[in-house]
Design a protein around this nucleic acid. Structure first.
Lengths: 319, 319
DNA sequence: TTGTATGCGTTATCAG
DNA sequence: CTGATAACGCATACAA
């Protein structure tokens, strides 16, 4: 492998000049520049990027932490992130965590080790306090509401989104309303729960703990959910499903079971994924790809900002 | 940031000894080891991984090239790859290409620049010849049938899989059989086409070019496909759909259009994704996660191997 | 078992 | 505009 030293020799200049040419610095006589370029051409020179990284202390690499890669929600987020990474000449380092804390720590560690310049955490299992410990080592961007001034974030106002959906169902006459959610933990889940509780209180509805159904992420989970609902003494007349995928699963299973939607069970999905349009699912639109883009931009910019995204209700046929 | 030099001073040893402790080398007196460990503890030392990379000429990073991140097919492949990466202490660098050649080249470039140790190409747009040029710089693993001895690959025998599906449809009495596919280009597509042509020839069926429908990847594409079929003078009685996602889309749209499956249109999906089980889709099972694992293992092993995966027909209700 | 010296390939500083 | 030379932080051959 030829290096800049070799190039310098070939072009009869110093390594500094070679470096200048390589980095498009001004103040290089055209003549020497051409000589260097010629040497590069002839030698099939290839920059060793690790040396650049070491020397500069930067890697042009952004870490992306997400629990699952095979869930469309994260796939779309990733798509947005990747599109901007490409545009800004950054590369992505992927950390698929399965919500296992140690894996999230590994990603944070990479930040500390300077293998990545900043870290985007799409969803996390570990404590916020731990994350904050790593702030000195580089920007960290989250995809959830965060009160801390030191942390950048792009997030959906989940409280408002949830409340909007609940109010809509109430307007439509529903009084027994439940919701399904991926996991109980997490800021987003918490925000939603708050909205739910406030809603319940506002209209003085009974709080039935069975109506909060969690642990489901996938299309195929719809079956389980429907089963659980069917087993209830007083099943909900409507449910908020925090993923269109799961909503689609529920609908499909209901068809098999001859449960008519929305008559017997109304539902509102989340995200407005293609499948929602397809199955005519009333849903809360969340611009995941755009959020991904914002997340990336925040990861490479110095200023710490907090971007709140408003969700939108899309009325279709499941309510 | 403290470095090994500082540690050496603190522990009253040489940098080599520090390095040895860091890398668990033998031949270090317990006493000195403890001194170093203590220094590490006290100093909040953090190894600069870029320096390690430069020094070693390796990065413990594997590149993954794939066109889309929001298609379950690739999500599952990625899941398998990621699981093994984790197990073997490698990190992943993601290249989302949208089948744009220049992006694939970028990934290959990274290999040349030694930013990644090897490259897994899940699907490609560029010529094989180009890929082969980069072979000197590190292992390249493909996810398609490849005759070249220098290239590692894990792939599904698409010809056999396709033929199996076609024969099954023939047995069931179908004579007008079409298929939908993501793109016309690509080894996998080619293999499938070969199988299709051989099948047509074998049973002396008419070759209707309209029956080969390409350009569709997503669930929501089902609508388009059904429309195209409906517009045909002599529509196929059965189609092979090379993605369960698309198959699901077709089924959903057929329900809206009151087209009964399998009576009016039979179909066989591909991959055996959760959605296939859900919608009771007859499909060709492809163990994507396992393939992903194999791809990764090939990427880190020296020996070049070629692993052929057999697909399996799963009989359900759409034929 | 330990330390010295050198190399890894670049960038950056500073003097000219 | 150009070139020496010192970082960057670590690994390792070699000597002891």
């Amino acid at each position: 492998m030829t290096n800049i030293k070799d190039l310098a020799k070939m072009a009869n200049v110093s390594v500094s000049t070679v470096s200048r040419v390589l980095n498009n610095h001004p103040y290089v006589k055209e003549e020497k520049r051409l000589a260097v370029l010629e040497a590069i051409r002839k030698s099939n020179y290839q920059q060793n990027i690790n040396a650049v990284h070491l020397s500069k202390g930067k890697t042009q690499l952004i870490g992306v932490v997400l629990p699952f890669t095979d869930i469309p929600y994260f796939g779309q987020l990733l798509k947005g992130i990747a599109s901007q990474a490409l545009e800004h000449n950054y590369k992505l380092m992927l950390f698929q965590t399965d919500y296992i804390e140690s894996r999230e720590l590994e990603a944070l560690q990479m930040l500390k080790q300077k293998q990545i310049d900043s870290l985007i955490i799409c969803s996390r299992a570990c404590e916020m306090a731990i994350i904050k410990e790593y702030l000195p080592y580089g920007p960290i961007v989250l995809c959830e509401k965060v009160e801390d001034e030191e942390l950048a974030a792009t997030f959906v106002n989940q409280y408002q989104a949830f409340m909007m959906a609940l109010e809509y169902l109430y307007e439509k006459g529903h009084r027994r309303i439940g919701y399904t959610i991926g996991r109980k933990k997490g800021t987003n889940s918490h925000e939603r729960q708050l909205a739910y509780e406030d809603f319940i209180k506002k209209y003085q509805l009974p709080l039935n703990p069975d109506y909060i159904i969690y642990g489901y992420y996938h299309l195929e989970d719809g079956e389980q959910i429907v089963k659980r609902i069917q087993e209830m003494e007083e099943p909900p007349s409507a449910i908020l499903v925090t993923s269109d995928q799961v909503a689609a699963g529920i609908i499909t299973h209901c068809q098999n079971e001859q449960i008519s939607i929305p008559e017997e069970l109304a539902l509102i999905g989340f995200d407005n994924q293609p499948i929602a349009r397809m199955l005519d699912i009333t849903t809360i639109e969340i611009p995941l790809e755009d959020i991904g883009k914002d997340l990336f931009l925040q990861a490479i910019h110095e200023e710490i900002s907090s971007i709140e995204i408003q969700a939108k209700l899309i009325e279709r046929g499941t309510v």
